[in-house]
């Protein structure tokens, strides 16, 4: 296993390994988000997905999300692992673990992390359906960025 808190891997993700990275005596809560591969999106049936990433930058941007979380929730500990390569239905694509002293912050910080992943982390999903395939764009439907990049506070 990797000791990295922010990791892109082409191997199956162990939820426990990600959780173990944020275990801390001051934590009263560990919130775990598990993103999995969904079969049906509206009426379209996914057969499998392929994820690609700009790995070095993606790990850096995941670490940036960790920094942003610690600015907002100073006692939080964060670990994120995202898988790339071919993933089948129900496979785990991403695991986010956040520990905090009190539970409310762990939910908020976890939600923050997944939303930011969808904004700034260079990872791409290619959907493979029965009748075709397509690289998916921004799922937040805010594309294109008018200035060619995420704006304002989303940067730094």
């Amino acid at each position: 296993m990797s000791e990295k808190l922010f990791l892109i891997t082409d191997e199956v993700i162990s939820i426990q390994e990600v959780v173990d990275k944020v275990v801390h005596p001051n934590a009263g809560a560990i919130n775990t988000f598990i993103g999995t591969v969904r079969e049906m999106t509206k009426d379209k049936k996914t057969i499998y997905l392929k994820y690609d990433a700009y790995i070095s930058m993606a790990e850096k941007k995941l670490a940036q999300i960790g920094d942003e979380i610690q600015e907002r929730w100073p006692d939080a500990l964060v670990a994120i692992t995202h898988r790339i390569g071919r993933l089948d239905i129900t496979d785990i694509a991403v695991v986010i673990a956040v520990s905090t002293p009190h539970r409310a912050d762990s939910y908020d910080a976890s939600r923050y992390a997944i939303e930011r992943i969808k904004e700034i982390v260079p990872i791409w999903k290619k959907e493979h359906w029965e009748d075709g395939e397509k690289w998916m764009g921004d799922q937040l439907e805010k594309t294109p960025y008018p200035t060619g990049k995420p704006e304002g506070e989303h940067l730094s």
């Binding site: 993103g35 994820y51 990433a53 700009y54 930058m57 993606a58 995202h82 694509a93 991403v94 997944i114 992943i117 969808k118 904004e119 700034i120 982390v121 260079p122 990872i123 791409w124 999903k125 690289w135 998916m136 764009g137 921004d138 799922q139 594309t143 294109p144 060619g148």
Partner: peptide
């Protein structure tokens, strides 16, 4: 867009991301 790229820099085109 106005930033400067110099020799040995690595530029990446990042299409809209879809991780998670």
């Amino acid at each position: 867009d106005t930033d400067v790229v110099k020799t040995n820099d690595i530029v990446a085109l990042v299409p809209p991301v879809s991780g998670g």
